[in-house]
Amino acid sequence: MSSQNINSESQAPPRTPLSDEQRRFLDSALRVNQAGELAATLIYTAQTPPVVKAHPHLRSLMKHMYDQEAGHFKTFNELLAKHRVRPTAMYPVWQAAASVLGWTTGMMGREAAMACTEAVETEIGNHYNGQVRELFRWMQELKDKGEELDPELKVLIDDIKRIRDEELEHLDHALENDAKEAKPYEPITDIIRYGCRSAIWISERV
């Protein structure tokens, strides 16, 4: 090994392991994210047949959003395995609830299906933003101490930011396709947003 490499290694900031509190945060974050992406794939699976039957031109959009959610789900499955995090014990409940929500809003029509997407993605976008802020806070605190976050967590931040941006893209698609024309708009979105918050709270803990 060259002296240049030795010097660069000796000058690199030390990497600090996660504290117990940070480990708990990461475990709960990944558990919730995986459950949320599972739910998203099931919602689109149930919505797509009735929506596309009534509006064939939406086939490619529904497939695009489903494919992105399936990719997100795959990413978080891999992250759960890598970081040895157990899935939420509520997994079967969220599976059933997501399928029912998707089927119900799909049968109510395009506007209701899009209102569902708007509500879900609003909550999920806020949730991912909170995770990104927390992870950046860790990085800043370590930087202030002359230490460095594990490179794998830097990759995790990039993954969450990318997934968040794709979820917000879905929100834009929903608004472009008359989500706010759903009848009744406010009860639909309020119930779904409250349900998402409740599911996040429960999955963080169970």
Rank of each mutant, 00 (worst) to 15 (best):
M1E: 12
S2L: 12
S2D: 11
S10G: 07
S10K: 15
Q11I: 04
P13T: 01
P13E: 05
P17M: 05
P17D: 02
P17K: 08
P17W: 00
L18E: 01
S19I: 00
D20V: 03
E21L: 08
E21D: 07
Q22P: 00
R23T: 10
R23A: 02
R23F: 02
R24S: 07
S28M: 04
A29K: 01
L30M: 04
L30T: 00
V32A: 08
N33H: 12
Q34A: 13
A35F: 06
A35G: 14
A35N: 10
G36C: 09
G36W: 06
T41K: 02
I43T: 06
A46M: 11
Q47P: 09
P49R: 00
V51H: 00
V51I: 14
K53R: 15
H55W: 11
P56W: 12
P56E: 09
L61F: 04
M62C: 06
M62L: 13
M62H: 07
K63S: 09
H64W: 05
Y66H: 10
Y66W: 14
D67M: 04
E78A: 03
L79F: 01
L79Q: 02
L80G: 02
L80V: 01
K82Y: 04
H83F: 10
R84T: 06
R84S: 06
R86F: 02
P87V: 10
T88V: 01
A89C: 02
V93N: 01
V93G: 05
A96I: 08
A98F: 00
S99E: 12
L101D: 03
G102M: 03
T105H: 08
G109C: 09
A113W: 02
A113P: 12
A115T: 12
E118P: 11
A119P: 01
A119R: 01
E121D: 10
E123Q: 13
G125S: 13
N126H: 15
N126E: 15
Y128L: 10
N129E: 13
N129V: 12
Q131Y: 10
V132T: 11
R133S: 15
E134V: 04
R137S: 13
W138H: 01
M139T: 12
D144V: 02
E147V: 01
E148L: 05
E152V: 09
K154V: 14
K154S: 09
I157V: 15
I160G: 04
K161D: 06
K161C: 01
K161L: 10
I163R: 00
I163V: 08
R164E: 09
E166Y: 05
E166A: 13
E169C: 03
L171G: 10
H173Q: 15
L175M: 14
D178R: 15
A179Y: 06
A179N: 07
K180G: 15
E181R: 15
E181P: 08
E181C: 12
A182F: 05
K183L: 13
P184G: 13
Y185W: 08
Y185V: 09
I188D: 01
I188A: 03
T189A: 02
T189P: 08
R193F: 00
G195H: 09
G195W: 11
R197C: 00
R197Q: 11
S198A: 15
A199R: 10
I200L: 05
W201C: 08
W201M: 12
I202W: 14
R205P: 09
